[in-house]
Design a protein around this nucleic acid. Structure first.
Lengths: 113, 113
DNA sequence: CAGCATCCTGCGTGATACTG
DNA sequence: CAGTATCACGCAGGATGCTG
């Protein structure tokens, strides 16, 4: 199921880190846990900086989404409608990532923030 | 317990990601789980690339270690001996990080590697 | 041995404009 | 609306040499 590059003997932690590298990948997955979302919804609302962060650049979001799709974490569904409508949702593999992110979330909530 | 910058309303996941940003921080913590280690031990053996990765640059390792110390994850103990001898160990806060890293490790081991 | 000081390079991120 | 095309830039990461 689409595991990109299976580096021979590399460290799992490092491999994981590389997979979710980038400022937004983890947050995207986390934000999709309850339901699929459209491109614009992910962009606005979810990633707009509550803490002063700027809105994510379209180009960046595109790349992160594409990377996640290529990694088999997300699925992209194009409805072929007009105006354009594309929805992103978690795959099974993506869902399996949620507990991991949750542990990060909880730790961060306790020790940081 | 040294929490650096407590960004007001920032996302815990993102805060966590920032804290452990860098290629080696997580692996360093992970490698220190069983016992304290010396600077050189961390550098050699542990971080030398089993998968072809080069040895970490001294400057980089220094920075990562310092950042982890500043974050209250690691503790630095200088024995004041000659030849120089410095040991790094996990603090309580650092230990609390282990389950989180473990979940990443397990996921990575299952889905990547 | 455990690091700093310097210099250098690539890539991740971002801003702006444009398109089907 | 959901992107792609360009251009620009800071900084993490690396290489080399030096020191107490």
């Amino acid at each position: 199921m689409a595991r990109a590059e299976k580096k021979a003997r590399s460290c799992p932690v490092h491999a994981f880190q590389k997979l979710v590298s980038g400022k937004y990948k983890l947050r995207i997955v986390w934000d999709l846990q309850s339901c699929p979302r459209r491109y614009g919804d992910i962009r606005r609302g979810l990633l707009v900086g509550q803490d002063g962060t700027k809105e994510i650049a379209a180009r960046v979001l595109s790349r992160e989404l594409k990377a996640l799709c290529d990694a088999g974490i997300l699925e992209r569904k194009d409805y072929g409608e007009l105006p354009l409508r594309v929805e992103y949702s978690l795959t099974l593999s993506g869902r399996s990532l949620l507990p991991v992110i949750e542990s990060m979330h909880n730790w961060g909530f306790k020790h940081l923030v």
